[in-house]
């Protein structure tokens, strides 16, 4: 054998299925009113504390909770639940700005880069998030409503 043999070909299998899931949207959770919404199914909302995307990228502590919730999400889907399992980015605030100052860049730039990095890392682990629901607290379309809520308070 010429190259070091992998115990099984995970390096081929894993990207293959991640691409299939993305294409088939297996993990999209339909809202009431959507075409494929099934009113017979019970809902189950499983939430991870969304990360603030730091410059260091994901560490092994993040996916600990994310794996646990992913197991429950996949299990509940097979038990017939309509499972909401979303992910997003808590990207405003001191840590993000401190990091930007240190690296001499604008926080908008570092935030964009860090989010991209986090996202690709999470996708590599095969989490069954409904990525259509991805949110970013620094997107004007999102913080418009943060400001609106402040005006209600």
């Amino acid at each position: 054998m010429s190259e070091r043999r992998k115990p099984y070909p995970f390096d081929q299998i894993e990207p293959k299925w991640q691409a299939i899931w993305e294409e088939r949207q297996n993990f999209h959770a339909p809202n009431p009113g959507e075409d494929n919404f099934d009113p017979e199914k019970r809902k189950f909302y499983i939430l991870d504390m969304f990360p603030y995307p730091s410059g260091a990228g994901l560490h092994v502590g993040h996916p600990e909770g994310y794996t646990a919730t992913d197991i429950v999400a996949r299990y509940k889907r097979m038990r017939g639940f309509n499972v909401l399992h979303p992910m997003g980015w808590d990207a405003f605030g001191l840590p993000a700005e401190q990091y930007a100052i240190k690296s001499g860049q604008h926080p908008a730039v570092t935030t964009r880069e860090n989010v991209a990095k986090f996202k690709s890392q999470l996708k590599r682990i095969g989490f069954s998030y409904d990525w259509e629901r991805e949110i970013n607290t620094t997107a004007p379309r999102y913080f418009k409503w943060t400001q609106w809520i402040f005006l209600q308070i």
């Binding site: 979303p86 409503w145 943060t146």
Partner: peptide, 17 residues
């Protein structure tokens, strides 16, 4: 606003982003 503002309601936005 402080960094906690955005995370005070994100779980609601996920319902209808």
């Amino acid at each position: 606003m402080p960094q906690w503002a955005g995370s005070c309601w994100y779980y609601l936005r996920f319902c209808d982003p």
